[in-house]
């Protein structure tokens, strides 16, 4: 790849980790100086660091579960019989398959949830910056508009009988 003269040469226009001197991706702070370098370390520590603990805990938890199941395997008897392995229907022989066709209303529940809960995603970023200086009544009004739309959705669903379940 032949490189011409690099005309733009600032941190603003080019990502700091991109070094124009070599081909391919190289994550360095070559062009941005020490501040970017610091940011990179902060990135690793602050970003992955905190979630590393979450990951470790997950590993610990998974280990706990695995150990428990392993120990359980040693402690418990294992004598399966066809009767035991038959699906439980209050002592009667199971009729039909185990998976029945489910009612469509569950789909409606899912749909309602999907719409509203995902919209709520926008609430959190807003909620955190809302109190900062410079944001005020206008920001609030904007969120009222948003809430109004969500509310209109609920009203619509209610009028359409989605919220009646019997």
């Amino acid at each position: 790849m032949v490189r011409g003269e690099v005309s733009i040469d600032s941190c603003v226009s080019r990502p700091p980790w991109w070094s124009g001197t070599q081909d391919g991706l190289r994550f360095s702070a070559g062009r941005c100086g020490p501040s970017c370098l610091g940011r990179r370390d902060a990135f690793v520590d602050g970003y992955f660091g905190s979630y590393a603990l979450v990951g470790l805990l997950l590993v610990v938890g998974a280990g706990f579960v695995a150990v428990s199941f392993a120990a359980n395997r040693l402690l418990r008897p294992h004598r399966p019989t066809p009767e035991k392995r038959r699906g439980y229907e209050c002592g009667l022989d199971p009729a039909g398959g185990g998976w029945a066709q489910s009612h469509v209303r569950y789909y409606v529940f899912a749909f309602l949830y999907l719409i509203f809960a995902v919209d709520a995603v926008f609430l959190f970023p807003w909620a955190t910056v809302f109190a900062r200086p410079g944001f005020g009544a206008v920001t609030l009004a904007e969120m009222f508009v948003f809430l109004g739309i969500v509310a209109a959705g609920v009203v619509y669903a209610w009028r359409k009988g989605v919220l009646t379940w019997v």
Binding site: P15, P16, W17, F27, F43, F111, L114, V118, V121
Partner: peptide, 25 residues
């Protein structure tokens, strides 16, 4: 990684989540 001051990446990420949900719906 970029430390994008306007947080465009995260904003689009939020929208992508919503888009994904709407598409599923």
């Amino acid at each position: 990684l970029l430390g994008d001051p306007s947080r465009s990446g995260q904003v689009l990420a939020l929208f992508v989540i919503v888009i994904a949900a709407a598409e599923v719906g």
